[in-house]
Design a protein around this nucleic acid. Structure first.
Lengths: 119, 119
DNA sequence: CTTAGAGTTGAATATATGTTCATATGTTCA
DNA sequence: TGAACATATGAACATATATTCAACTCTAAG
């Protein structure tokens, strides 16, 4: 007779391993948030924007010109970056300037670069 | 008369800034690869798998049991992680054991955790 | 107060992506 | 060789997501 979990009856080969790892896992919500964060980095347009803002603050239409895309597309992506607390903005007249809002962005970038360039 | 780019006629407010940042940007291909890498991290199932493998190597069906998902779903995700050089595997009889294949994974995780937990 | 420029937003569309289901490999053991 | 098990794979479906287009807000200047 096989033991059953609350949700499934998948069998387990190494019960001790599964139990040990299960206890070591961070809470669901934290892992979900982590995936959400990396999802933001997982788009080449947003990567380019973050990369550009690492150099200096820029306004929306300059970013659009830099990347050869429409203001609307850039604005949509900036909203996502803003929601993820990765960029902040300041308004000067009609122009809105965006800049990085996180010290970790550079570090995350660096590790990513290390991986893609190393192999 | 407005100056035109090769591909578009978007106007620029701060030409000097755009030119300076443009020269500082890494090559397109590298940024694309970087986005592809983070895209792999940008799924909660894959995050959980990587998180589990940080503890110790595991076989497919144990991972499936741990996460309460089907073997097939896990196998599909492991293929993606394998293609990204984030996990490696060894076969022992019928069982295939997966483990982390990158020293940067832990660092990327750490930075991500720092961001999500800090706000 | 009207106009023009900079940016935002919402709906729509096209594409990408994760999971499921069924089937195929590949390995061990009788 | 054949049965049983662990894993992998392919097609299909459902959902998520990026860009476009049009309309809208907000500010500065005439």
């Amino acid at each position: 007779m096989k033991s059953k979990d609350a949700t499934c009856d998948l069998h387990i080969i190494h019960r001790e391993v599964v139990e040990r790892v299960s206890e070591a896992m961070p809470p669901e919500e934290m892992l979900y948030d982590l995936a959400e964060l990396f999802k933001v980095f997982g788009d080449s347009t947003r990567i380019k924007i973050l990369c550009a803002l690492q150099e200096e603050e820029m306004c929306v239409c300059d970013i659009a010109a830099l990347l050869g895309m429409t203001q609307s597309a850039i604005s949509h992506q900036l909203r996502i970056l803003k929601q993820a607390s990765l960029v902040k903005y300041r308004r000067d007249g009609k122009v809105v300037y965006y800049s990085l809002d996180d010290e970790h962005v550079s570090n995350i970038f660096a590790q990513g670069f290390a991986h893609v360039s190393h192999r």
